[in-house]
Simulated assay, not measured.
Amino acid sequence: MAVPKKRTSPSRKGMRRSHDHVAVPNVVYCECGEPTLPHRVCAVCGSYKGRQVVSSEEA
């Protein structure tokens, strides 16, 4: 069975795990001031690209 000959240093371990982080989501602020995800309808006011898409009762 294959066994490592030397101990993996913290630096090398960190370099290997550098792509395992959780990506921070982009935040776009709606006209109403609420943070939303890009290319999504605002959950608070129901607008998208400056026009009303969903009525305020549904949102």
Rank of each mutant, 00 (worst) to 15 (best):
V53I: 14
C42I: 02
G46C: 07
A2V: 15
R51Y: 09
V53L: 09
R7L: 09
S56I: 14
V28Y: 02
V53K: 08
T8K: 12
T36R: 13
D20A: 15
R7Y: 04
C32E: 01
P4A: 10
V24Q: 12
R40S: 12
C32W: 01
S55W: 05
N26V: 15
V28K: 05
P25D: 05
S11Y: 12
M15K: 15
Q52L: 12
V54P: 04
R12I: 13
M1G: 14
V24P: 00
R12G: 03
R40C: 10
K49T: 07
S56K: 15
A23H: 11
Y48P: 00
P35T: 05
L37Y: 09
H39Q: 13
P4M: 05
P35F: 07
S47D: 10
V27Q: 07
K5N: 06
K49G: 02
V41S: 02
S18C: 12
H21L: 13
G14T: 10
H39F: 13
V41M: 04
L37I: 04
P10A: 03
H39W: 08
V28P: 04
T36Q: 07
R7P: 01
K5F: 03
V22E: 13
Q52S: 08
V41T: 15
G46D: 03
R7E: 13
V24L: 12
E34A: 13
S18T: 08
E31P: 04
C42P: 01
V28A: 07
V3C: 10
E58K: 15
H19I: 08
E57I: 03
S55F: 03
K6M: 11
V54D: 02
R16C: 07
R51G: 06
A59P: 00
S18L: 09
S55P: 07
V28Q: 05
K5L: 11
A2D: 14
P4E: 04
A2H: 12
Y29P: 02
V3I: 15
P35W: 04
P25Q: 04
C42Q: 02
V28R: 03
S56F: 07
R17V: 04
S18A: 15
V44R: 06
K49W: 00
R12V: 14
T36N: 09
V44W: 01
C42M: 03
G50Q: 00
P38V: 06
P25L: 05
R17G: 10
S55E: 09
K49P: 00
G33L: 06
Q52E: 07
A2S: 15
V53M: 07
P4V: 05
N26H: 13
R17M: 10
G50M: 02
E34S: 12
V41W: 04
V53G: 01
R17H: 08
